[in-house]
């Protein structure tokens, strides 16, 4: 899933300076699961904003709402929601960067009489897995050309700090990465897994230059499923 974390309050506060009607819009998908931008976090940010405003003698009004998924029109096509957005001076989106952009585009498409400002309350950090309660680790970089079949299901592009494709660098020590002693050396994990799988021969083959075009290096990407289009 997409993992995010909330921006510091002061940064969010500076985005809404001068606005008197503020709508906080949470997202009920990934960022709810990673406890960064769901209903609970919307209410906490709302409470913080109201307290901060009251301290400063600011009468701004804060409204709290959650859309099930901000990255999809289907979940934003909701008349009461659109009315609230229309009524607000600014929308603080608690979705990931995808949701912020999509909601912004959507609202500005369906609302004619004004331009809607949508600002982010989160920093989108990575695509990762829930490793423990309250802990998420990055697992995929979205390079567009998966190699996991060769590396025992452990991604060297994402999990090696140097994205090496031909084994561990000289900084692998006691199974840990030199860049961060709390991080496993991806190649150490790969070697152990390949050994268990009986696929150590994979390590002997030279993995050639990666074609980075399917990754972001090729420019913004899109996926089109022609069979789904009318």
């Amino acid at each position: 899933m997409i993992v995010g974390e909330r921006k510091p309050f002061s940064e969010i506060l500076s985005m809404v300076e001068g606005d008197s009607k503020i709508l906080i819009l949470g997202c009920g998908s990934c960022v709810t699961v990673c406890m960064a931008g769901g209903e609970e976090e919307v209410k906490i940010l709302g409470s913080q904003l109201r307290m901060a405003f009251r301290r400063n003698g600011n009468n701004a009004e804060v409204t709290e709402l959650v859309a099930l998924r901000q990255c999809d029109d289907e979940y934003l096509e909701d008349t009461p929601l659109i009315e609230k957005v229309k009524d607000a001076d600014i929308v603080i989106s608690m979705a990931c960067g995808v949701g912020v952009q999509h909601a912004s585009t959507f609202f500005n498409r369906v609302i004619d009489d004004k331009t809607i400002r949508v600002v982010p309350a989160l920093n989108t950090t990575f695509m990762g897995a829930n490793i423990d309660v309250g802990e998420w680790h990055e697992r995929c970089l979205g390079c567009g050309d998966c190699v996991l079949e060769k590396t025992g299901g452990i991604c060297p592009i994402t999990r090696c700090a140097k994205s090496l494709l031909n084994g561990p660098c000289g900084g692998s020590f006691n199974g840990k990465c030199e860049v961060n002693k709390d991080t496993d050396c991806a190649w150490h994990l790969i070697i152990e897994r390949l050994e268990a799988l009986g696929e150590l021969d994979n390590l002997k083959k030279i993995e050639m230059y990666k074609d980075w075009r399917p990754s972001h290096s090729g420019g913004p990407r899109k996926t089109v499923r022609e069979d789904m289009k009318i």
Partner: peptide
Amino acid sequence: SLLEEVGI
């Protein structure tokens, strides 16, 4: 820490 951010 959330309160401190707000100045309480």
